[in-house]
């Protein structure tokens, strides 16, 4: 196990370095921040001076090395757009994104697994067909459209839920949470639903097909032959054995949820990292963009690592050492 972790960490560092290189090269083509950092009266000479001061005139290699060295030291620079340290900006935005992502993931699991089990057990019932149809919508409608439709219906027509923002937040140390206030909880419903809809569909379909597969296996037949109750057979034996792929997918999707919260955050003006990133692209705010991509890469790498470890915990077959299996 330790060997596995070390190997994974070395791989992760390589992945992150690659991401940094690719990200930084791409940013060269996003545009020039200077024309937006100053107003229309600023002279050409002053613009040029600013470009020089920001180091934008240096060769791209020099800029990258400087950026990489600073990043390793934890110095992410000052945002061109907001004039504030980038790590502070991310520290402020991180809780919003993580809370939204976790609520969305939880929602997709809590709703998706039972729906999957049900449709797997009773594929011919009317309710199963309804679930299947809903899941088709979830997988085919783009996120922003779902978001805007929800806003229109629950926000504007019914006025039940707030149409944007995070509601009131409570500060717990550096972590700001909206999950402890009524308005915060109300505010998270629609964005989390929007963000979790796709994952819900995915999990439901996965659990369904896995369930149907498992129910056909011999050990289920034997379990039934032993006269176990349906409950024990379905949940104790069948569901447990479908969970390995579900864990993998959920884990990997958690990374995607965090990364692709961008669109949901934009639609709901959710003050998270994705919104910050999107605004920064429009401004060509290179320090924020680079940090964001590296942070997301970091999340993916960590989540993958955790998923790998969980695998070993859940699936006993993987716990055996390779050498044992090979008979050395």
């Amino acid at each position: 196990m330790p060997a596995l972790i070390i190997r994974r960490i070395i791989q992760s560092v390589l992945v992150m370095l690659t991401v940094a290189v690719v990200a930084f090269t791409l940013f060269r083509y996003v545009g020039d921040p200077v024309s937006q950092m100053v107003g229309q009266e600023t002279t050409i000479a002053e613009r040029e001076q600013l470009r020089e001061d920001l180091g934008l005139n240096d060769p791209i290699i020099v800029q990258f090395v400087r950026f990489a060295l600073n990043t390793v030291q934890g110095k992410f620079g000052i945002s061109f757009r907001l004039g504030r340290p980038v790590n502070e900006l991310f520290a402020e935005r991180l809780p919003a994104t993580l809370e939204l992502s976790l609520v969305a993931a939880l929602f997709s699991l809590v709703v998706g697994i039972p729906m999957g089990v049900y449709t797997g057990l009773y594929p011919d019932r009317v309710l199963s067909k309804v679930f299947q149809t809903i899941s088709l919508i979830g997988i085919s409608l783009p996120t922003f459209l779902i978001g805007i439709l929800l806003i229109l219906f629950f926000g504007v027509l019914l006025s039940w839920l707030p149409t944007f923002g995070r509601g009131d937040v409570i500060q717990l140390g550096w972590w700001s949470t909206g999950l402890l206030t009524a308005s915060g909880l109300k505010a998270v419903v629609m964005p989390a639903f929007t963000l979790g809809m796709f994952q819900l569909t995915l999990i439901m379909r996965l659990v369904r097909s896995e369930m149907m597969e498992v129910l056909r296996t011999d050990y289920i037949k034997f379990a039934r032959a032993r006269g176990l109750t349906n409950r024990t057979v379905h949940f104790g034996h069948a569901l447990k054995n479908t969970l390995v792929p579900v864990i993998t997918i959920t884990g990997l999707q958690l990374g995607s949820i965090i990364a692709f919260a961008i669109i949901t955050e934009t639609v709901f003006q959710w003050p998270g990292m994705g919104l910050l990133f999107l605004q920064s692209i429009q401004f060509a705010d290179v320090p924020v963009m680079s940090t964001y991509l590296i942070l997301i890469a970091f999340f993916f790498v960590v989540i993958n690592l955790i998923v790998d470890i969980l695998y070993h915990v859940v699936d006993p077959r993987l716990r055996f050492d390779k050498s044992v299996v090979l008979g050395h």
Partner: peptide
């Protein structure tokens, strides 16, 4: 003051009285 960048969201916020 809140920034609401998305046009549709901004209009919805006004229509819903937020």
């Amino acid at each position: 003051f809140t920034q609401v960048a998305n046009d549709a969201t901004r209009v919805a916020a006004l229509l819903s009285g937020q």
